[in-house]
Design a protein around this nucleic acid. Structure first.
Lengths: 215, 215
DNA sequence: TAGATTGTTAATCGATTAACAATC
DNA sequence: TAGATTGTTAATCGATTAACAATC
């Protein structure tokens, strides 16, 4: 069975579909057409149909899409029907923010460990999760089948720590450090570069000001 | 003078160029060719030259690009040569993480206020910045010429708060709430949807597992 | 059956890469 | 001047949108 490669652009949009469908589901909507959804989401109906058809025919001519069914199916595609064990490396504000955000657990992302280098934090708990020291890392990853590590440490330490995490068996890194990690191809990395996001905002402010107050 | 519209794809890449050039500068590199940079950044040299030429001819034939000069120029394009006043709405872990991240100030993003609804936090300081109550918001925005608001509150309150911020004069919103804000066209919004980022990671893990352990 | 809406092919648009003349 | 490398045009590739036959 030849799996056709799904483009990154499509994958990037999937979680947003999932979010909108979840909200529709909550508000009791049973079915929706690509056209109605396109109005809500401000994308073209054509794109919605094209995107969904990458994964199968979820709709029905003359009817549209069943919200509950589509929601479930996209959830499966995104792997949200399975649990993922997550650890957080770095118990600073950002690490704690992630640990405290309950909605992740609801989606199957189980945070079962937080690690830090600061000995003062040893044993402190965040949302019931004990902060551990790095010397426990290897054993913990292996014993708890940890798949994802959220990396919320300064960039100076990030590359080294990422190597270690991969060596110990982590499969994917959610990287909040402001640097690119150079890891083997099979390691999955999702970067969250907040400073880059802020710079894009700054670019747009600057351009807007130039356009409107040029003199 | 007719400004040609710069594509979003290009703008998205600019901060990454800026980061790499900053690192080169720090390590004392004086000049670099599109080819060398392309190797470091894992993009094509052609793309680098095309991207930069949207903004002007920063290079020199036979020489390449002067690192210092290019760094400065990209900084200007991104608006990092000017200060931007930022407030944070929501003094939770995420809000505090942003407040505590010193590198933003270095880039001209001056955090001069943090707001929350929790009266217990009134007067508490984060990195020397006092947490204020929402009833002070309007006056504060106007008196301090606040351009950017980082929105780190639960999604149930986000839309309403965003409307308020715009009404009070904020020009741009850095949105961390897991929802889309429907604001007037001229308001600039940069979304950071962490749950969507995590879902993309989950998608890739799931697909990877299917490919390698299909049976 | 008539109406609605999908799934899918074809057309368009935009972004990336390749190529090379210009020029330092 | 010869070599290197840009700036820029042309070619390719991929993603989005439009159109419509299939079908519920």
């Amino acid at each position: 069975m030849e799996e056709k490669e799904i483009s990154k652009a499509v994958i990037k949009r999937l979680p947003r579909y999932y979010r909108y469908l979840g909200e529709l589901l909550e508000s009791g909507v049973e079915r929706i057409s690509s056209n109605e959804l396109s109005t809500k989401m401000k994308v073209t109906a054509s794109q919605i149909r094209q995107d969904l058809n990458n994964f199968g025919g979820f709709g029905q001519q003359g009817y549209g899409y069943n919200v509950k069914h589509l929601y479930t199916e996209i959830g499966k595609i995104l792997g949200l029907d399975q649990n993922h064990n997550v650890i957080i490396i770095g118990a600073g504000n950002l690490g704690q923010a992630i640990a405290n955000y309950g909605a992740f657990e609801k989606r199957g992302f189980i945070i079962n460990g937080i690690f830090d280098v600061n000995p003062r934090l040893q044993g402190v708990t965040v949302r019931g999760i004990e902060i551990r020291m790095i010397d426990e890392l290897e054993q913990f990853i292996k014993e708890n089948n940890v798949q994802i590590a959220a990396l919320t440490i300064p960039k100076s330490k990030a590359a080294e720590m990422a190597d270690l995490l991969i060596e110990y068996g982590v499969k994917a890194i959610w990287n909040f450090a402001h640097t690119d990690l150079n890891l083997p191809e099979e390691v999955l990395v999702e970067n969250v570069h907040l400073s880059e996001s802020l710079m894009r905002l700054s670019y747009n402010i600057t351009r807007y000001e130039k356009e409107h107050f040029k003199d």
